[in-house]
Design a protein around this nucleic acid. Structure first.
Lengths: 192, 192
DNA sequence: GTCTATACGACGATAGAC
DNA sequence: GTCTATCGTCGTATAGAC
């Protein structure tokens, strides 16, 4: 009774494809990267590749999901600017994937798009994550508490996304500075 | 000496095309809107339309430029949260154009893309605009000045973009709240 | 279940006639 | 300035070998 269920050869091949697709999009960006190119690097025909995915958008969504999962594994605990620093560094090393992320965010505005659920879940997970961190810092007295931590978290998450959008056009913008600045603004000012 | 130079019938037709394209993309979004569809609404064939533009990406870039120009005319002076409120309301009324904007921002990461210059100019214009406003408010003593206005402006601009990105996926997010919140944070706290 | 071959319709782009 | 015709490529769909 060898491999059965979702752990057979097929599942391994699917993950190989996702890994190859991630590399191709990281290297060549979102625009101008065709599925035929990805299939070729997998030593597969296009229909052979499509055997594992419902559509191109489904494949791309799973690429982002796989990247999210690995990032989550590496940053199990959110530690503020420190964690953010690592995450943006990973983005800066793979501009093609940032481009993919932003393109998908636009496409996901259609509720029927496969990535719509991904982005909804993503924000639903990240915001409480950041909120918990902020609440902890507030309890320690390290942060001013004029605003509830939920609303501060909304600001931090949106800020991170917005900086990335600018960085796509101008790679010289400092993605770290605005986050450092706002943490400075939030640092308990009554001590100063 | 009738119409000559860039003010003849051709220029009028070009602007008609841009207006029609803006409407089509506003209604049907970026994905799944082809140039043939735009051409049809202009009572033109595809090559007839392409006579006025170098490429699809060129046309879309000019659509965004035209929208920017009209927005600039309507909001000649940046008046803080008030102006922002009007601008996001216009975005909320035309989600297809927000989707177009974000998609183009991703594509513009390629320096050879026609929209690359647009986004570069855009940020180069908006940031000083917001900076001036903040500096004025600081001089009035209405804002705390722990940070230079340039850095505060960078935060505000990125925040606005990032909120839009989230709003594309979840139309229930409040695009106004985070801006109001951060202005609250910046309001001279030593008076409270 | 895994994969190849082939074909389809639509896209953006271009050549050349009028 | 605008058209018809055509090109290469894209994502997708189906038939069928193994």
């Amino acid at each position: 009774m060898a491999r059965r269920g979702p752990y057979g050869k097929g599942e391994a091949k699917r993950e190989e494809i996702l890994q190859v697709a991630l590399e191709v999009f990281a290297q060549e960006g979102y625009r101008g990267t065709s599925l035929r190119k990805v299939a070729a690097r997998c030593h597969l025909s296009l229909p052979g590749l499509m055997h594992y995915f419902n559509s191109k958008e489904d494949l791309l969504t799973q690429v982002l999901r796989a990247r999210d999962a690995s990032a989550r594994a590496r940053h199990a605990e959110f530690k503020g600017a420190e964690t953010y620093r690592s995450i943006i560094q990973e983005g800066a090393d793979t501009p093609g994937l940032v481009e993919l992320f932003v393109s998908m965010a636009a496409a996901a505005s259609d509720p029927t798009h496969p990535a719509h659920g991904l982005f909804a879940e993503r924000y639903a997970e990240i915001r409480p994550h950041v909120t918990d961190y902020l609440r902890r810092r507030m309890d320690e007295g390290a942060l001013r508490s004029d605003l509830p931590p939920e609303r501060l978290a909304a600001i931090l998450v949106a800020l991170a996304d917005g900086i990335q959008l600018q960085w796509l056009t101008d790679r010289s913008v400092d993605m770290q500075q605005p986050i450092d600045d706002i943490m400075l603004l939030l640092a308990a000012p009554r001590e100063a």
